[in-house]
């Protein structure tokens, strides 16, 4: 699988996700600086977690205008896969790759712990390694993970099966309809707040996230 992780000023999960991809595929992904304006031919682009641009203005807003994001948008428009985690999810929404927005957590606090979530959609390159309804435990670490969209958008996401993950009686941020992760219309872009790369090796205290990386390798290679 030809994968690349985009590195923004303030990214801090770029190396974690690179290690998880390397372990699953046997090949290290390319690390591409946000200031570049072109991407090589790729099967997968990762927008990693972190605090790009110090969360100035709105989370992900400045990163969404980085030079590389035009190339990421073209990659997505061609049907390329994009895996957007945490700050990456925030960027993907700001860049219009996914609908909605991520707001401050309802309790006004930064949350850093494992959460229980349910796999809602197993028909995507990211989630095919799970059973429908499977309950998994993945860590979150965010202050702005409160997914918001208007009711019409939420109804559409649910109606078309584009909700990938839901918090399972364990919503850490107040997100609409307990949404933890969503897919694009063509199911090739996934945005999620929890960090599967932090639960992809037993040494990290959990392996429930590993199936996402093996699924990506199997489907996208």
């Amino acid at each position: 699988m030809k994968a690349a992780v985009i590195v923004f000023p303030g990214s801090n999960c770029d190396r974690d996700v690179a290690v998880a991809l390397h372990q699953a595929s046997g090949t290290a992904p390319a690390m591409i600086w946000h200031g570049d304006s072109t991407l090589p031919d790729l099967d997968l682009v990762v927008l990693p977690g972190g605090f790009s641009y110090g969360d100035y203005l709105r989370v992900g807003a400045i990163a969404a205008l980085s030079p590389i994001m035009q190339a990421v948008r073209r990659h997505a428009e061609r049907g390329g896969a994009v895996f957007a985690v945490c700050n990456g999810f925030q960027m993907a929404c700001e860049a219009g790759l996914l609908p909605g927005a991520l707001m401050s957590n309802a309790a006004g606090k930064y949350v850093c712990r494992h959460v229980a979530m349910r796999v809602e959609n197993t028909d995507s390159p990211f989630t095919g390694g799970y059973d429908a309804g499977q309950r998994i435990s993945i860590p979150v670490a965010h202050h702005d993970g409160n997914y918001f969209a208007d009711d019409a958008t939420l109804d559409r996401l649910e109606g078309e099966g584009l909700v990938a993950f839901r918090y399972d009686n364990d919503n850490p941020n107040g997100s609409c309809r307990d949404i933890a992760g969503i897919l694009s219309d063509n199911r090739r872009v996934l945005g999620m707040m929890p960090h599967p790369e932090r639960a992809a090796d037993a040494a990290l205290g959990g392996t429930d996230g590993a199936a996402m990386f093996t699924s990506m390798v199997e489907t996208l290679s």
Binding site: M103, S104, N105, A106, G108, F148, G174
Partner: peptide, 9 residues
């Protein structure tokens, strides 16, 4: 209708 935790605090 959009929640504003900072405003509330």
């Amino acid at each position: 209708g959009v929640l504003d935790p900072q405003g509330k605090a």
